[in-house]
Design a binder for these strands. Structure first.
Lengths: 167, 167
DNA sequence: AATTTTATGTCAGCCTTGTTGACTTTCCAA
DNA sequence: TTGGAAAGTCAACAAGGCTGACATAAAATT
């Protein structure tokens, strides 16, 4: 199962267990870095990573419903509700009764919520921008490609759905 | 701050906020996929992700000390200790008093621990292998490059340290 | 019109995994 | 011999997952 250095049949020599393990570790360490900057900001505001995720996706799809957010985030409604309630209570998110379907709640960021989201996002983008710059355009394309392949199929579909019309 | 589609000064046109945001989301969804398979196994065994991380790094550096593991994992000793204790109690990890320094504990996997680690790792590697295969060698190189750039500097150093002699 | 389903919210309670703070034991090294 | 590092332990707490049960309103179906 382990092919330390041999040239595989079709240029697949890079797929040794050791290489894969390094990839796994890289993913672990990188994700830590990825969340480090927003985490600092969140902590001083008394929020957590869960709040950040909610803010991010409400920003991304204004007017989204609770159910929608639920499946995107992959948590239970009780878990999301707790987060959402504090965000509404603190005046960061607005929850309005739906037009067509009055059972639904349409979620959007308030000005205050948008401000925090922007601050968090900017911190995270700063790091990603630096990483992208240092790695170069081709590396970025590869990065994105591998990440997409790593997603669960249904999430990949959801993710790729918002691709074409990225004006 | 937003350059929707313009060709930047030096081919940096890909660094729009929108592109960066997509990168952020990709990271989020991919990490979920990345942990999904081991998580399933862990749950049916009554362990959590923290146990997996400990097993992984003890496997990677047998005989490592608690302090070493502490800085690698980036958690407090109390937090790690709880995880470590259950692993020792369940007979997955052996904690032996150090030779030179008897204050230290040298950690290694038992046969049982190695078996679980291998099972978890194989599940994770299976997904990563599939992603690597689908994305191709160049994408993989870029993926690794960006991930390394995304790490905190000290973690990047630690990570890159185990690179040369990877046979 | 009556019934069922859906979307959401909420209460209660549990688990994992992170945190701080205080304190002890061991034992190396200056 | 004494200071400090390494490790462990106890207690208390918080975030953020989870399940289960139940309430309400609105929509959809029969």
């Amino acid at each position: 199962m382990n092919d330390a250095s041999g040239s595989g049949s079709e240029g697949l020599l890079y797929l040794t267990d050791e290489q894969l393990r390094k990839g796994i570790e890289a993913m672990f360490f990188a994700y830590r870095g990825f969340t480090a900057d927003p985490d600092k900001i969140l902590q001083e505001m008394g929020f957590g990573r869960a709040h950040h995720r909610a803010l991010h996706f409400i920003h991304r799809t204004p007017g989204t419903t609770v159910n929608n957010l639920l499946t995107t985030l992959g948590v239970t409604k009780q878990s999301l509700n707790r987060v959402l309630r504090t965000l509404v209570d603190e005046g960061l998110v607005e929850s309005r009764v739906g037009n067509r379907d009055k059972r639904e709640r349409n979620l959007r960021l308030t000005e205050k919520g948008a401000a925090l989201e922007s601050r968090l996002s900017e911190a995270q983008r700063r790091r990603m921008r630096a990483a992208y710059r240092a790695a170069g355009p081709e590396a970025v394309a590869g990065f994105r490609k591998v990440l997409e392949e790593m997603m669960d199929a249904d999430m990949r579909r959801r993710f790729q759905a918002g691709k074409e019309g990225s004006p």
